[in-house]
Structure formats: structure tokens, C-alpha cells
């Protein structure tokens, strides 16, 4: 790549990573303080970062003629862009801006790590010279990104559910005794609650938090302002419902490619089997989510475990375990 083109690539990369870091900080501040202004600033920054990153990948392809997802840098870069894109879609559709801080922070870390694998542009090895790379890799990476966003929702669910248990076990005596300052109107402070939102605010599934919040406990007031557990569970389910069909399609397209490149649609390669293990974990999630008694903290834990498995499949297998997918560079 000539220096001018290289500098375009660099500028877009810097814009992307700066936007993610800034956006993460602003939206984390929104997550903690819930000032609408921070959300108004943070969301466009996240959008700028995502667009810059997609442009950077597109520019690389255009300038070098080499599909940018042939190495770990390219795929991690797309992973972070897709994670932010999925977050933005869900944030706009379901009012989930509070999720921006964790998602953008993770995207920034992924992109920062990706740059350590950036060796410039190289032609693809023979195994990767196939039209399947333009189908299989984006699908799989987008599924990983969806699971990352889902894991962020699961973590928030577990935080709130865990704190509810803690408040419930602690009782309210201490809280009431130490309460001071003005009382906070919990429903007005909630992300999702609006004045006529009779459907959402009617059920209190975290009574201990609500009571502690009413008594003036600051942490409880903050927790009470998070979306309800039911809503977090539904959001987590919806995002996994995006990721799981994509992962399934990714495994299927990968099998079709493997059939063309290696002679068998399934080789028991570490990457394939790790993807299968992740698929099984999310299949478990989906089965258990049909059971009311399992829905909630248990399924949230499975979502977190599933994401750990996805990360092992994505990075662990690529970096530590050699196999047919060990392209690394």
C-alpha cells in the first residue's frame, strides 16, 4: 500500500478507536449517572466509531484488493464494528443506550488488541482464497459480536439479581436507619419507565431494591433505575436469538467451505469443535429459556458461559491451539 493510502487506513483506524474509547467513557458515565445529555452525546460517537471502522475495512479492501478478513486483525476489527452496530440497532429499537458503556469498552479493547496483530495487508493463503470467506467469516464474526452484546446484558442482569438477593438477605433495618437526604422517585429515574407506562412499572420483581431505594440507599436507587429483570431477560434472549441462527449459519457455511477446501464438511478441527461446543451451550440456553423456573439468573449465567466459550473458540483456539484454522496473521 502506498503511503497516502496507508495514512487513510491509519486515520480511519484512529478515528474508530478514539470514538470507541470516548463513547465508552461517555456512555459509562450515562450508565452510572443517567444524565440524558451523556446519552445524546454518546450515541452519535458510537455511530461515528462504527462507521469509521467499517469504512476502514472497506478502504483496505478497495485499496489493496485483498479481502480484509483474512487475518486476526481484520476479523477482530469486524467483531468490534459488528458489536457496536448490533448495540446501536438494539439501542434505537429497544431503548438500550445504558448498554453502550460496556459494549463500547469491549469493542475498544477488541480493536486495540486487533492492532497488535496488524501486520499490514498480505495476500491470502490458498486455503482462504475462496468466495466462502466473504460469506462464512462475516456471519460467524457477527454472531460472536451478538453474543458479546448479550453477555453484557446478562452481566447487568446478574448484577441486579445478585444485589436484589443481597438487599433481601440484609433486610432494610440498616438502610432505613442510615437513610438521609431527599427521596428519589424510582419510576421517574428508570431508563424504561415513563409516566403512562402502566405495563412495565406494574410488577416489582426486585422489592428489596425498591424498598431500599425508597429508604434513600444510593446504590439501590441506581439499581432500581436499571431496566427490570424481565426486560433484561427478554433483551438477552432477543440478542441471542440473533446470534444463534447466525452461528448455526456460520457453522453450516463453514462446513460447505470445508467440503470444498479440505474434502470433508466436518474434520473435528479444534475450531469447528469449539464452535460446536458454543452452539451446544446456546442451544442449552434456548431450551432452558422455555422453562419458567430456569428463566432468569440461571439462563443469564449460561449466556455468560456461552460467551466465554465463544471467546475461547475465537481467540483461544486461533492463538494457542494449532489446527486447520491456525492462520493467525
Amino acid at each position: 500500500m502506498d503511503p497516502t493510502r496507508q495514512s487513510i487506513d491509519q486515520v480511519l483506524l484512529v478515528v474508530g478507536i478514539s470514538a470507541y474509547i470516548t463513547g465508552a467513557l461517555v456512555l459509562l458515565a450515562y450508565f452510572l449517572t443517567r444524565r440524558p445529555l451523556l446519552r445524546t452525546i454518546g450515541m452519535p460517537i458510537a455511530t461515528i466509531g462504527c462507521v469509521a471502522q467499517i469504512l476502514e475495512l472497506g478502504a483496505r479492501w478497495w485499496m489493496t484488493g485483498v479481502w480484509p478478513l483474512t487475518n486476526l486483525y481484520g476479523s477482530l476489527s469486524m467483531f468490534s464494528a459488528m458489536a457496536v452496530a448490533i448495540f446501536l440497532i438494539f439501542a434505537v429499537k429497544y431503548d438500550l443506550a445504558f448498554l453502550g458503556g460496556p459494549v463500547l469498552a469491549a469493542a475498544a479493547i477488541a480493536l486495540g488488541y486487533a492492532t497488535t496483530w496488524n501486520e499490514g495487508t498480505m495476500p491470502a493463503v490458498p486455503a482462504l482464497q475462496s468466495y466462502w470467506i466473504k460469506i462464512h467469516v462475516p456471519i460467524v464474526v457477527t454472531s460472536y459480536a451478538a453474543f458479546m452484546v448479550a453477555a453484557c446484558v446478562s452481566a447487568i442482569y446478574l448484577l441486579k439479581a445478585g444485589m436484589e438477593r443481597r438487599y433481601a438477605s440484609r433486610g432494610l433495618r440498616g438502610v432505613i436507619a442510615t437513610a438521609g437526604g431527599p427521596k428519589l422517585d424510582v419510576s421517574m429515574n428508570a431508563y424504561a419507565a415513563t409516566a403512562d407506562d402502566m405495563l412495565r412499572t406494574s410488577r416489582d420483581e426486585t422489592p428489596a431494591i425498591t424498598q431500599a431505594a425508597t429508604a434513600g440507599d444510593g446504590l439501590a436507587q441506581w439499581l432500581a433505575g436499571l431496566p427490570t429483570l424481565a426486560r433484561l431477560d427478554v433483551m438477552q434472549y432477543r440478542i441471542i436469538a440473533v446470534g444463534l441462527p447466525l452461528l448455526s449459519l456460520g457453522i453450516i457455511t463453514g462446513a460447505m467451505w470445508a467440503k470444498e477446501a479440505w474434502g470433508a464438511y466436518w474434520q473435528w478441527d479444534p475450531k469447528e469443535t469449539a464452535a460446536l461446543a458454543s452452539w451446544i451451550i446456546y442451544a442449552m440456553y434456548m431450551h432452558l429459556h422455555t422453562r419458567p423456573e430456569w428463566r432468569g439468573s440461571r439462563t443469564a449465567w449460561i449466556s455468560v458461559i456461552g460467551f466465554i466459550s465463544i471467546m475461547f473458540c475465537y481467540l483461544g483456539v486461533n492463538i494457542w491451539i494449532s489446527g486447520l484454522h491456525s492462520y493467525k496473521m
Binding site: W268, P270, T273, A277, I280, M284, V317
Partner: peptide, 10 residues
């Protein structure tokens, strides 16, 4: 099944 599969990966 998932555990057995992961054993084979590791």
C-alpha cells in the same frame, strides 16, 4: 456433549 467436545478441543 459440550464438555466432551471441549475435552477434544483442549
Amino acid at each position: 456433549w459440550a464438555v466432551l467436545t471441549l475435552i477434544g478441543v483442549v
